[in-house]
Every structure is written in structure tokens, then in C-alpha cells.
């Protein structure tokens, strides 16, 4: 009798960490100006380099953006994994179930209430107190949408119905936002649209501290929930019969997901497809359903995907920057299609 091989998982983890590190350095080196990797390493290690401009580019622009990419990938993937397990729905994910839409609405509401800066895009300029407020608003928005979805999923246990409800709830929030846009100035609308494209570059160094600590705590909390998530794999009735407090677990999972997805959406805009695609990629890569392995590997695979998307969106060697949201969709959608085709029965793909 063998217990699922740990040696294999260790090797898989080592491989994933190496890829993350490689892409991390590559992302720092590539961009409108290409900086050699050994120079990047020197700058990171705090050694003196001849080219001060390179040092500034790396430390002030590329490093925050690259760290943001890692945080976004990790947070959205872990959020998506929790949603898929909780709803037992392979197509669940922050962007699909209207959670990011709820977060956007939360952000928009705060900006409206503040009166001065009526665009969500303006959050980039707020101070550290403002950052926390944004995170709170977008998390509350995400939480409310999730509660609605959860209440409906209680009554209707049909995956397709749930997805449709998610899309409808997203539409309602989008409608509210567009009413608000209708009464706004054209410049503000333009800024909002820019925000919806998604951007990793707008997070300043001290906002990064806020975002980083929230994502860190959120992922740690998810890891503490891994036994609960494993029990939920068999469905809520079984989980309950094994002694799980269903109501408390559900609220906890939803709370953690809302904070993760809400914080990311607040700072970087609604970034799609990462949350739905990465858990599937991770499961088929590791061939396991054990959340104790899935959560850390989702963090790594999410970081890899996001770093990769960021590199592409920078269009290395040119001054053009493409919206990162378009890149995640272009890479994420084929992955989702590939999963559906490969697995045929999505229900058994957990």
C-alpha cells in the first residue's frame, strides 16, 4: 500500500518554484528596455550597478508590478479553487459568478460617496488609509454578490442555473455602474474603462504592502481551511455527517474568497479567467484533489500564469503595453475549452 507519493509532489513543487523564479526575473528584465538577467539579479541583491536608470526602472516600476502580478495570480487562483469546491461547480470562479462585478460596484460606490474623485481609476492616487477603504468596499461588494449566489444555490442545485444567476447578478451591477457612468464626465468614463482593462502597474509601493498582507493572510486562511474544503469535495451532506459545521464553513470560505478577489479587483481592475483556469490546470498537473497540495500549487501556478501574461502584455522590446485583461482572456479561454474537451464530463474533473 502506497500513500499518494510525496516524492512526486516535492518534485512538482520544486519545478513550479523554479518556473516562478525564472519568470519573475524575466519579467523584471523584459519591457520597453531590455535589461540583462545578471544585471537584474545584481540590482535585486542590492549590489552597485553602473546604470542608475536601470536600477530605477527595476526597483521603482518593474518590481512593484511584478510582485503585483504574483499576488494577483495567487489570490485569484486560490479564490477560484475555493469557489469551485464550495459550489461543486467546475465553471465557478471570481469573474464568472459576478464576484468581481460586485467588487467593482463596491469600489464605484465608495468613489461616488467620496464625491471628490468619482472614478474608480482614481484609487491609485489615494493614500494608505484610502487603500484599506477600497479593499473594504470591494470586498463587501464581492461578499454581497456571493451571499446572493449562495442563497440561490441553496434552493437550486443546478450548475447551469447558478452560472446564469451569476451572470445576471453581474449584469445588474454593471447596469448600476453604467447608470453612474451616464451621469459622469467623459474623462471619468475613460478612466473607468481603463480600469476595467486591468492593470498591474498602478499599485504603488506602500499600497503593495496593504495588498500583499491581505493576500498573504487570505491564502494562509485558505490553507487553514484545507481540511474543510477536502470534506466538501463529497458534498455538503457528507461533510456534515463527518462533523463539519456547514454554515460556519460556508461563511468562512465566502468571506476569505471575497477578501481575496475584492482586494485584487479594487487595485488592479476585474481580471478574468485566472481564477477559473488555474485550479483546473493545477488539478490536472498534480492529479490530486487534496487541498493541502492544491492550495500551495494554485499559488504557484497562478503566479506563473499571471507573470507570463504580464510579460506578453508588455510586448517586450516595444513601448506598447496591452491591457492585461485581454491577455488573460486570450490565454485563459483556450485553457477552459481545452479542459472541457479533455475531461468531457466536467463534473468528474474535481
Amino acid at each position: 500500500m502506497k500513500i499518494p507519493s510525496t516524492a512526486l509532489s516535492v518534485r512538482a513543487f520544486a519545478l513550479l518554484i523554479l518556473i516562478v523564479l525564472g519568470l519573475f526575473l524575466l519579467n523584471l528584465g523584459l519591457g520597453s528596455v531590455t535589461i540583462p538577467i545578471d544585471e537584474v539579479a545584481k540590482i535585486l541583491l542590492g549590489k552597485d550597478v553602473e546604470n542608475v536608470a536601470w536600477q530605477n526602472i527595476i526597483l521603482k516600476i518593474r518590481l512593484p508590478r511584478t510582485v503585483t502580478a504574483v499576488l494577483v495570480g495567487a489570490a485569484l487562483s486560490v479564490g477560484g479553487l475555493q469557489m469551485q469546491t464550495l459550489f461543486r461547480n467546475p465553471l465557478a470562479g471570481p469573474s464568472v459568478l459576478g464576484i468581481t462585478a460586485g467588487a467593482s460596484l463596491g469600489v464605484a460606490t465608495i468613489m461616488l460617496a467620496a464625491g471628490s474623485a468619482t472614478t474608480a481609476f482614481a484609487i491609485r492616487s489615494v493614500g494608505i488609509g484610502g487603500s484599506w477603504l477600497i479593499v473594504l468596499a470591494s470586498s463587501v461588494g464581492a461578499f454581497l454578490v456571493l451571499l446572493i449566489i449562495l442563497a440561490i444555490s441553496y434552493r437550486i442545485r443546478d450548475n447551469v442555473v447558478m452560472l446564469i444567476v451569476g451572470i445576471m447578478v453581474a449584469n445588474i451591477t454593471i447596469a448600476i455602474v453604467s447608470i453612474w457612468q451616464y451621469f459622469s464626465d467623459p474623462e471619468q468614463i475613460q478612466e473607468y474603462i481603463l480600469w476595467t482593462f486591468g492593470s498591474l502597474g498602478g499599485v504603488t509601493n506602500y499600497q503593495l504592502g496593504v495588498l500583499g498582507s491581505i493576500v498573504g493572510v487570505g491564502i494562509l486562511a485558505t490553507f487553514f481551511l484545507s481540511k474543510t474544503l477536502n470534506a466538501l469535495l463529497l458534498g455538503e451532506d457528507y461533510a456534515q455527517s463527518m462533523g463539519l459545521n456547514i454554515r460556519r464553513s460556508r461563511i468562512l470560505i465566502i468571506f476569505v474568497t471575497s477578501v481575496l478577489a475584492g482586494a485584487i479587483t479594487g487595485f488592479c481592475g476585474p481580471i478574468g479567467f485566472v481564477g477559473i483556469a488555474v485550479p483546473h490546470l493545477t488539478r490536472s498537473f498534480l492529479n490530486t484533489s487534496d487541498h493541502r497540495l492544491l492550495i500551495p500549487s494554485c499559488v504557484l501556478v497562478g503566479a506563473i500564469l499571471m507573470l507570463f501574461c504580464d510579460i506578453i502584455s508588455q510586448v517586450p522590446g516595444s513601448t506598447t503595453v496591452l491591457p492585461v485583461n485581454a491577455i488573460t482572456a486570450m490565454i485563459g479561454s483556450p485553457i477552459v475549452i481545452w479542459i472541457i474537451v479533455k475531461r468531457r464530463h466536467l463534473k468528474s474533473s474535481f
Binding site: L234, D237, S348, F350
Partner: peptide, 21 residues
Amino acid sequence: LTDRIAPGNLTVYGLVSLGRF
């Protein structure tokens, strides 16, 4: 239970060990 829930990626050992929850 009758629920035909099948987390396909779970091993038999993994599923039985959930009973130790």
C-alpha cells in the same frame, strides 16, 4: 448517500481517509 458525487481526481485512499475527518 445516493448522491453520485465523484471527485474524479481523488484517490480511493484519499476518499476513505476522509472518513477519519
